[in-house]
Design a binder for these strands. Sequence first.
DNA 1: CGTGCGATGTATCGGTCCGATACATCGCGG
DNA 2: CCGCGATGTATCGGACCGATACATCGCACG
Lengths: 212, 212
Amino acid sequence: MLEFAILGLLQESPMHGYELRKELTAKLGAIRAAISYGSLYPTLRRLQAAGWITEAAETPATAEEVPALTSRRGRVVYKITADGKERFAQLIAQAGPETYDDTGFGVHFAFFARTDQATRLRILEGRRRKIEERREGLRDVLGRAAERLDAYTLELQRHGLDACEREVRWLEELIANERSGRAPTVPHVGTAGGRREDNSPPPPGETRKERP
Amino acid sequence: MLEFAILGLLQESPMHGYELRKELTAKLGAIRAAISYGSLYPTLRRLQAAGWITEAAETPATAEEVPALTSRRGRVVYKITADGKERFAQLIAQAGPETYDDTGFGVHFAFFARTDQATRLRILEGRRRKIEERREGLRDVLGRAAERLDAYTLELQRHGLDACEREVRWLEELIANERSGRAPTVPHVGTAGGRREDNSPPPPGETRKERP
DNA sequence: CGTGCGATGTATCGGTCCGATACATCGCGG
DNA sequence: CCGCGATGTATCGGACCGATACATCGCACG
């Protein structure tokens, strides 16, 4: 999952670890706390070993500033390679079982702007199915095994059931919206290119809830 | 976390691995998919090494049935020890930072029937605080960084924000209920004791939502 | 003027948990 | 009689986390 997310972010622009973590947190904040350095750095190393990213030198222009005074140690900027882009394209198009669990789905969804519509639909439906199964499980427990469990556990299940029903509804909306034709993929930001103010991708759910 | 849950379940009655997994799934179904054997068995071994659980022989009564034909390999039943009960008591009373993340909170909550009221309150408030922080983070992103993100990512954040707000409200209700005096702890099932039909612990949230 | 502290930045280590896999038994329906 | 799904125990490699260590930079406060 981390591999996927890193490749996706570096696709947009080169970054160093710290920055990557911040972007990751901003993009995935809704689904996971904050990615740990204990995961990040080893993963970067792994990706580099696989040839999907490379280190890019820091401060390439204006080579003036004190070349060897205080040794100038510093930020390691990573950049995606051609192989990396290929890898990302492969990852974004496929949908295995891990694509439907909470984290996997969240990460894929976060990159939906670069996913083709057919795949988006496939993933949304797979996710819905999975949540529906979880929902049925909870209903079973609340129905058949209710007297075996204490009131707190039951309350927990009810809250979980509620969340499931809510997510299914959310997914239904997204699916309907997806099917309704619109939803263009973001126009593929060029490798070179100047200034990408870029996109304004599809409005996935027009359903804004007005809170008072 | 697994350690906590296993100790909690074995407190109620001895079980073998498979059974333990099923109970775990029933009790924690609302918060996590299904615990893997790749976690369960190593953890059981760890708990046994620590002296918190022991193996109990299978089929102690009616020792007749074919003693050594086909070797009678079989289910390993685990039973909690006195040290294990002590350990569980210690775990259930304390609330560290890991108590407030999704999984940690869920597991603690699932055993609230055996948690004293002061601790319940402490945990609920800690959880609320944590969710409020996450909520603020999401609001920040949706406010300040909105134009940097694509529509799908934004939709994900909105959905997450919605879930946060909902959970905070849920927690508020539980906290209010907790404070309102009621909510007795389950009367501590005895170590020996015959027939515990047991409990009917507090109604944590009287707030049932009538769905049409 | 210095000094200490919070943000930036890179990195490792031990431990928890997961997913895949393997293997054996039992009861039941075809 | 045979296969198949449920029951049951177990291991292995890998992903990810939390704690920890350490170094630099800017700036606020004494």
